[in-house]
Amino acid sequence: MTNFDLIATSAMGLEAVVAKEVRDLGYECTVENGRISFKGNETAIARTNLWLRTADRVKIKVGEFRVTSFDELFEKTKALAWEQFLPENAEFPVSGKSVKSKLFSVSDCQAIVKKAIVERMKRHYKRNGWFDENGPKYKIEVALLKDIATLTIDTSGVGLHKRGYRVDQGEAPLKETLAAALILVTNWSPDRPFIDPFCGSGTIPIEAALIGQNIAPGFNREFISETWPIITPTIWDEARTEAEDLANYDQPLDITGADIDHRMVKIAEENAFEAGLGDLVTFKQMRVQDLTVKKDYGVIVGNPPYGERLGEKQAVEKMYREMGQVFADLDTWSIYILTSHPEFETLFGKPATKKRKLFNGFIRTDLYQYWGKRPPRTNE
């Protein structure tokens, strides 16, 4: 087996969560802005794609070097051992991005990288003309940051947030990866009740159920690297068998999602059934102001409206105040609310135990964390 330099890409603010997931899978890693770097073989590629709940993609790093001219980019790209990854018939589109670099023309960088790889492949495969590119697909990216070029191949294909269960969604759906991260930063365990009072299309409760039963989030989808000769079908079969063996389908769960919009509740139910979790999650049409809780030591995770649209702000602020009153008596519950509203703590009526800066898409938000009392220890 080959040992690859791998990168799990991450949304800003989630790097530590992704790094913990990578380490929990048994791989040592280093953390930078937006990326978690680690080493692993073909099995690691399959396992991380199947298991990482909060990463955006898993990529192979083919090379990284300083570059300030197009000639330099061409020669250094050509010097990399592309033939170790790409078969003769590989389809290999090149995408790119450039931030604070002398080589700022992305289209030129893409064209040069493509040409350099072709020249390297011609020499290796002893070809004169262009390649047919009618084989498996390898999505290559050249990313320039402060004159450092990183050349990667995407092993995931469609982003890892695409679990395959979303039949429908609302206007501003929460990414599945961010929803999973919100749950993982709480102290929730599957033996405790869990409520999302603003469930929308059901993403947070569905991700909680997947976590609660230890179901690999990528179990029911395909990955671009499944078509590559360097990762045999046996490796994927073994990784999926491991995921099946580790799932705890008998774990009982107490997970509720609620939303004020009956159409969203119906969509959430359909999405949960598509995920195979329809019997495990309860969805209700309800205003957060009407929430009543009879159990103790649960966790609430919510992504309420932010009041950013014209005309919505007053209604949202009123709802935040009422939410604070409803939640005030839940002293054994831990509450986690994601919002971009800068006055949330004042409106809610209580300073957060801790705040965490996160990005919901391009919106800068804070996760306001209110930690409840710990459950009493039970003597085994």
Rank of each mutant, 00 (worst) to 15 (best):
K61V: 09
A180D: 03
K162P: 10
L50T: 10
K126Y: 11
R120Q: 14
E72Y: 02
M1A: 10
W236E: 06
K102N: 05
T9I: 12
L277A: 12
D259P: 04
I215E: 01
R287G: 15
L182Q: 02
E28Y: 03
W188M: 00
N134V: 08
K295Q: 04
G361T: 11
E28Q: 10
S225L: 03
A208S: 06
A243P: 06
K122T: 11
C109T: 04
I363Y: 11
L151D: 01
K354L: 14
F273R: 12
L253A: 01
W188Q: 00
F198W: 13
G96F: 06
I363P: 05
M323N: 14
N33P: 05
S107D: 15
D254K: 08
I267A: 05
E308R: 15
A268Y: 07
R35S: 12
F223Y: 07
G164V: 13
G257K: 01
Y138G: 03
T232K: 14
E75P: 00
N128Y: 08
E119W: 09
G159A: 15
N214P: 00
W371C: 00
A79K: 10
P305K: 07
S340P: 05
I195M: 03
D237Y: 06
E88L: 03
P229F: 06
K139Y: 11
K122A: 07
I255Q: 06
E83A: 12
S156H: 09
F359P: 03
T332F: 11
D329L: 11
N248M: 14
W51F: 13
D147H: 03
T256C: 03
R356M: 15
V265G: 02
K357P: 12
M286R: 12
Q314I: 14
T155L: 04
K354N: 13
G157V: 08
